[in-house]
Design a protein around this nucleic acid. Structure first.
Lengths: 336, 336
DNA sequence: TTGCAATGTCGAACCGGTTCGATTACCGTG
DNA sequence: CACGGTAATCGAACCGGTTCGACATTGCAA
């Protein structure tokens, strides 16, 4: 491969002149610049990333730490990964994707060796072990998901509390008095997925305030358990007139169950959920729902990170941003 | 961050001695090694990746080129990405994941700048525009998916022809004479997904040899089109006694359709498919099927690539490996 | 006519590792 | 006691970029 020295020789100038022609940090005469450019074209020169990183202390790479848990639908993570990758590329960064089980260790490895200029942490748990190492890393980071202590961190998450209140309000306004609430699997809460109880607690509290009766459950994550659980729950709560579903597997598995039981939505039962638009389209879910907007979250995290990588300490105070839930009415609720 | 020079100073030795203590390429006295190691621990030294890459011309990073097409279920790609990432890490490599639309351009960018030691191309099409740039790259690559010209490349794919023959043979052996065949969406074939016609042609040819009647269709990729198409197809072919489904969306959407029509499997209809084990478990598909084994393919590609990166030209002749289809009998077929 | 600033280019140092050849000390051997 | 061999370490060069300070040339104003 051609080096900057080869280009310099071919153009009859010094290495530094080629560098300045490339970066534009000093003025170069038009004639010299043209000689350099044609030499670059002829030799097919592309700067060596390692050498550049060494000289500038910048890699133009973002580390993406993905974390998978048992009983989560792992392909769904792609909904976050793709927008993040796209947004990073638009800002001139590549993505080093790390899926190691030992997240803190992986984080330390890539930051200590200066492989990346910054980090995005996905699926952040309440007591996420990656947050400590992130704080002591040289590189800035942005989180998707809410940790217990957000001090000094840029954090992005959906406002799950507000989402729950919106759904309860919606059903209350229609006159529903008994509601079934299905949360993610219990495994998710034990490993510290705070969004589970942020949503659940807010729903329970709001329902209590209205004097509504609400029946909370933790849902299954796989067929055929999903269908079986739905039948059990619906049998156990024959007087409930609405369900709120915060669980991808449970809501994807709902239509055939209702179909088999002869339950018509919204005539016999009002159904609301919380899931991403893409997910809903894939499974053709005809339910009124809050969008989880993984694309917005991913892009926001990258933007904040890029800002912070560019401006360093001058990038201003850290931001904890809860993106506002949006309700899409697909007509799956009715008055009672 | 501490450099190797800081460590050397703290341990009272030269930089090269520290380097040799780290790599073990020359003998170092126990006493000196211990001084160096404790200096490393105290200073928290980790070698700088850029400097090391510059000195050794090795990045210990694998580029993963992911390609998404309209009308493919993109999260499904995660089934390939995860095993590849895991296998790479086990071999000591990190993954630079590139999802750029312009694949050839991205490939050229990361290879010319020496950001990676090797490449894995996912979802390779018959006339994949990335294969040319890959051939002229310095770094070796491994493909998942079969291109027209495999010369000089390590290629891994499922043996779709054999898979189709196994399924036709299976149905023929049970006495079926009229079979519906559902392929992936037509968009996939137009952009050059060779596995579509490799499977389809083999099935048609095998059926013709047995004198079976086979009705081929290209399937939809989203609800509610999927359900609608199933109803149309089943209405149009009332005498068919079996279906072969090579389309994730269509087979995931099949159970509710059959349920609604009162069709019982395998009493009224024999069903076979081709999909990954994970996919089948997620949707609880009770169908006899060929495994597409994305994990095996991904890991095989990484293994071959690692071998070639280590041994360079001495790694032997390129390999085109079709992994053997395995049929899992879930009891969704019966004699006719 | 001299002085000064702006323009364009060069050489050298530096980023943080690895590796080659040379050097020193010490050992056993003839 | 000189000699060769081995173990342990050092210094310098190198990988391929970037950047700082210096320098030569030119144009313009005083």
């Amino acid at each position: 491969m051609a080096t900057i020295g080869d280009v310099a020789k071919a153009a009859g100038v010094s290495r530094s002149t080629v560098s300045y022609a490339l970066s534009g940090k000093r003025t170069i005469s038009d004639e010299t610049r043209e000689r350099i450019e044609s030499a670059i074209r002829e030799l097919g020169f592309t700067p060596n990333a390692g050498a550049r990183a060494l000289a500038t202390s910048q890699t133009r790479v973002i580390g993406l730490l993905v974390q998978f848990f048992r009983d989560e639908f792992s392909p769904a993570m792609m909904q976050y990964v793709l927008p993040i990758s796209d947004a990073a590329r638009e800002a001139g960064y590549d993505i080093l994707m790390v899926t190691e089980d030992d997240g803190p260790h992986a984080l330390k490895r890539i930051t200590d060796s200066d492989m990346v200029d910054g980090l995005v942490l996905l699926n952040v748990a309440h007591d996420d072990p990656r947050v400590g190492p992130l704080r002591s890393a040289r590189q800035p980071g942005a989180l998707v998901g809410l940790p217990r202590d957000t001090d000094g961190l840029d954090v992005f998450d959906l406002d799950f509390g507000e989402a729950a209140r919106m759904l309860v309000d919606h059903l209350q306004g229609l006159g529903h008095r008994e509601i079934i609430l299905v949360s993610p699997n219990e495994h998710v809460i034990t490993r510290g997925g705070a969004y589970v109880w942020r949503f659940r607690d807010a729903a329970l509290e709001r329902a209590a305030r209205y004097g509504l009766r609400i029946y909370p459950y933790y849902g299954e994550t796989q067929q055929p358990d999903v269908a079986e659980q739905w039948n059990q729950v619906l049998d156990a709560r024959p007087t409930a007139t609405a369900v709120i579903v915060h669980n991808d597997a449970m809501i994807a598995g709902l239509p055939p169950v209702l179909n088999a039981r002869g339950v018509e939505v919204p005539r016999d039962l009002s159904v609301v959920g919380i899931f991403s638009e893409d997910f809903g389209r894939l499974f053709s879910l005809p339910y009124t729902a809050i969008e989880t907007s993984p694309d917005k979250l991913g892009r926001a995290a990258v933007q904040a990170l890029v800002h912070r990588m560019r401006d360093g300490e001058g990038a201003g105070a850290p931001v904890v941003r809860f993106i506002a839930p949006e309700l899409t009415d697909r007509g799956s609720t009715s008055t009672r």
